[in-house]
Design a binder for these strands. Structure first.
Lengths: 160, 160
DNA sequence: GGCAGATAGTAAGGTACCTGTCTATATATC
DNA sequence: GATATATAGACAGGTACCTTACTATCTGCC
C-alpha cells in the first residue's frame, strides 16, 4: 500500500517530503556517476568554486547555508583531495578554496546532478509544471524574505 | 542587502529555504501562543492523537516521519505532561498515546499553527497562488512516490 | 594615527530528521 | 498446532542543517 497524504496536506509536510526526494535523488545521481564519496552538500562547492578561488564566506552566500556547514563540506573535500585551501593574498583573515586537478575533473558531473534531477522531474510531470513550481516557490520565498524581520532561521521542522 | 537567489535556482535550494521559513513560522506561532515548550515536531502529535488513543506507529504514518522521530516527540510531550502512554489492550506489543487534560486544552492551538501559517502566506501572495503551489507539490510528490523504487529516504540535503 | 564596527574563520553545542539492528508479540500459512 | 513473516517499539549511531560566542584582521571615520 502506497503512503498516502491527506487531501489538503499542510504545506510543511509537502515541502519536507519533496525536499527529501530531491536530496535522495541527488545522492543517487552522484553514486550512479561513480562518486560515492561525494555527498550532496559537497556539490555546492563544485558548482560555485571558480578557477581563481573563493572564500568559504562567499560560498555560504551562494549556497545559502551557514559558515559551519560550508566549512565542513570544504574540509571533507579537502581530505578527499578534491579541493585545497591557500591563504588569500588580499585578506590575511581569509583562505581561498581551489579545486585540485582531481576536483576539476569531477566538477562537471558534480555540478550537473541538480540539473539531472530537474530534468527527471520534468519528465515525470511536465516542464511547464516544474517551471510553475519553481516560480511559485521563488515568489513565495521573496515575499517571505521581505516580510519577516529577516535573519533568525531556526532548526526546527514540522508540518502541522 | 537582501539575500539573493539566482534567476533559475535549483529546486532543492528553493525547497529547503521555503521549508526553513515554514518551520520557523510554526515555531514562532507556538511561542506567540504562549507554548514555548512545544516545538514543531510535537504539533503532529496534537493534530493526530484521537480521544481513543493511538499507537506511535500510526502517528508515524500520519506525519510521515520515522518511528524514532515520533517516539522522541511523544516522550518529550509525556515529560511535559501533555500526553500519557498506556498499554494497548488489543496488542501487547503496543502502547497507546492519549492526550492528558492539559494536552486536550492545548490541542486546538497546537494543531492550528499550521493553518495559521498557511493563511499568513496566502496574505503575502494570494490564496490562488498558495493553492497552486500546494497542488503542484502534491502532484509531484505522487509522481515521485510512484516512480522511485519506494522506501529509501536518505538523510542528505543539498541543492546543486 | 587611532578606534569602532564589520567580516573571515574556528569552536562548541543543539535539533529534526534519517539508518540499521534487536526483542517481543501478532498474524497468516501449511 | 507449528512455523515463517510482519509489526510495535527500543537502542545505537549518523547527517545536514542551525545557533551563539570567540579571535584575528580589515575598513571607514574622526
Amino acid at each position: 500500500m502506497k503512503e498516502t497524504i491527506p487531501d489538503n496536506p499542510p504545506l510543511g509536510l509537502l515541502l519536507r517530503l519533496v525536499h527529501q526526494h530531491w536530496t535522495q535523488a541527488v545522492d543517487n545521481a552522484l553514486d550512479a556517476a561513480g562518486f560515492g564519496d561525494i555527498r550532496p552538500p559537497h556539490a555546492n562547492v563544485f558548482t560555485f568554486t571558480p578557477p581563481e578561488g573563493i572564500q568559504v564566506s562567499e560560498l555560504t552566500k551562494l549556497a545559502h547555508v551557514r559558515k559551519q556547514t560550508m566549512t565542513q563540506a570544504v574540509e571533507e573535500l579537502e581530505k578527499l583531495g578534491y579541493v585545497e585551501r591557500r591563504p588569500d593574498p588580499n585578506d590575511r583573515r581569509g583562505r581561498l578554496v581551489f579545486l585540485t586537478e582531481r576536483g576539476r575533473a569531477v566538477r562537471p558531473i558534480a555540478s550537473a546532478t541538480g540539473r539531472k534531477v530537474d530534468e527527471r522531474w520534468a519528465e515525470l510531470t511536465s516542464p511547464e509544471e516544474m517551471e510553475m513550481l519553481r516560480q511559485a516557490l521563488k515568489l513565495l520565498f521573496e515575499k517571505l524574505r521581505d516580510d519577516q524581520p529577516a535573519g533568525a532561521v531556526s532548526t526546527s521542522r514540522s508540518d502541522s
